[in-house]
Design a protein around this nucleic acid. Structure first.
Lengths: 234, 234
DNA sequence: AGAGAAAGCTTTATCTGATGAATTGTTGAC
DNA sequence: GTCAACAATTCATCAGATAAAGCTTTCTCT
């Protein structure tokens, strides 16, 4: 038993154990989960901790308990798919090719619009932040790991400049999923260098408030990323 | 006391009561919530139900409990902003003008990209569904309430056609928030009728796989919607 | 038989009390 | 004034008991 939970996180153990099993398909929608007593034995926790864990999963839309009828896995459309835990359980072990496509498509759908909004409504400080992030991209182009981090920061700065907390939240949770995939990606200085011009164009367009150019440049970035992702993930 | 909880949902009462108070600003990030004993008195439930409720809110990123240190409201950037409950607490009573802007901007950022994806990757059945939804728009143009419903269904069909469950999830949770705002909107047959041509163009473009036209038509729709929303919510 | 009602069983819901563990605050020595 | 031991507070978890709510089975009446 890996000491994933240092002790003193009994209910979290239930949340993670059951949650991951559900999201990864070990328990299908409609399935009954074992009774409380059985789960108590299985997880080696008391009934209180177990029930707290189950309630958390119910709060994420994964489970539904009804007295005397047991606890069942809710249909997939009830799941809080953008809950950080749910996303992690889905993408963390090793995302399927389909999952990679979903993420790549989502970025394509989202980021150009975010860049456009940023160009329209960013305040001075946010435009500066993008410029700073851009400079860091140039500076780290020969260091694959640092570049990944800088790239993430750049895109986050763009979303932040859109002045929309929901949009920024979406970006952040997607980043979590992306970082789970990242290891799959080619990480070569040459590859990174090729993406710089489009980033530069996007940064400049946002800085100058050219929403059309910003959107187009960002689209190019994410389209290329999608193409690469799909090529590398059969 | 509205019978929101038919009885037999003690812990849900805690979730809603505390959650709404936090999201609406009654408890600021960093604040300590009262101790378990105090909350037990306040909500009139037992410690089990109370703790289950608190754990659910912790699962949504709103609270953080540490033994002996009490339970505190987590910083806003930890909140699961796209959790349906959190969204409801935020938008349900009466959204602020700022909230309306956030939603309108989010649609502008999101829907054109979704329409583009739909045009690229929808399968036959999904294209048909969009056509059906479009027909229903025409049919309900003189019935404001039915039109709202048809409009929602149309946009949902577009998102569904993008074949991206995360994107569809985003649409669905935003719809929840939108329906909270809807009463604010003008609901006139004339106004509705004006939006039909753009909808028709979007539907047709998606049907024919013209992603550029689909994106442009959808952008027009949401830009107009944004303009209207901002005008009506000073 | 068949329909329907009633009893009983299963399983979750909640409460209560007790114990453990960890952080905070206090006190006292030096 | 500093540091260490001690005490108090508060959440964490367990265990047992009772209630409530569906589900199943059985039994009765037609």
């Amino acid at each position: 038993m890996p000491a994933a939970y240092p002790e003193g996180a009994r209910h979290a153990q239930v949340v993670h154990g059951l949650g991951a099993r559900i999201v990864r398909g070990g328990l299908a929608p409609g399935d009954h989960v074992p009774t409380e007593d059985e789960l108590v034995s299985e997880f080696g926790v008391g009934r209180s901790a177990l029930r707290e864990g189950v309630k958390v999963l119910a709060g994420k839309g994964l489970l539904e308990s009804r007295t005397s009828a047991g606890t069942r896995v809710r249909p997939r459309q009830s799941w809080n798919l953008l809950d950080p835990d749910v996303l992690t359980w889905r993408f963390a072990p090793s995302p399927s090719a389909e999952d990679v496509r979903v993420l790549a498509d989502l970025r394509v759908a989202l980021e150009p619009g975010a860049a456009r909004l940023a160009a329209e409504s960013a305040i001075a400080r946010q435009r500066s932040a993008i410029a700073v992030a851009m400079a860091r991209l140039w500076a780290t182009v020969d260091d694959p790991d640092a570049f990944i981090e800088a790239d993430l920061a750049f895109h986050r700065a763009v979303f932040a400049a859109a002045n929309n907390d929901l949009l920024l939240y979406i970006h952040d949770v997607i980043s979590v999923a992306l970082s789970a995939i990242r290891p799959l990606h080619t990480r070569s200085a040459g590859h990174n260098r090729q993406t710089l011009p489009a980033h530069e164009r996007a940064a400049l367009a946002i800085r100058r408030g050219h929403h059309l150019k910003a959107e187009a440049a960002m689209r190019e970035i994410v389209e290329v990323a999608r193409h690469d992702a799909l090529r590398e993930s059969p």
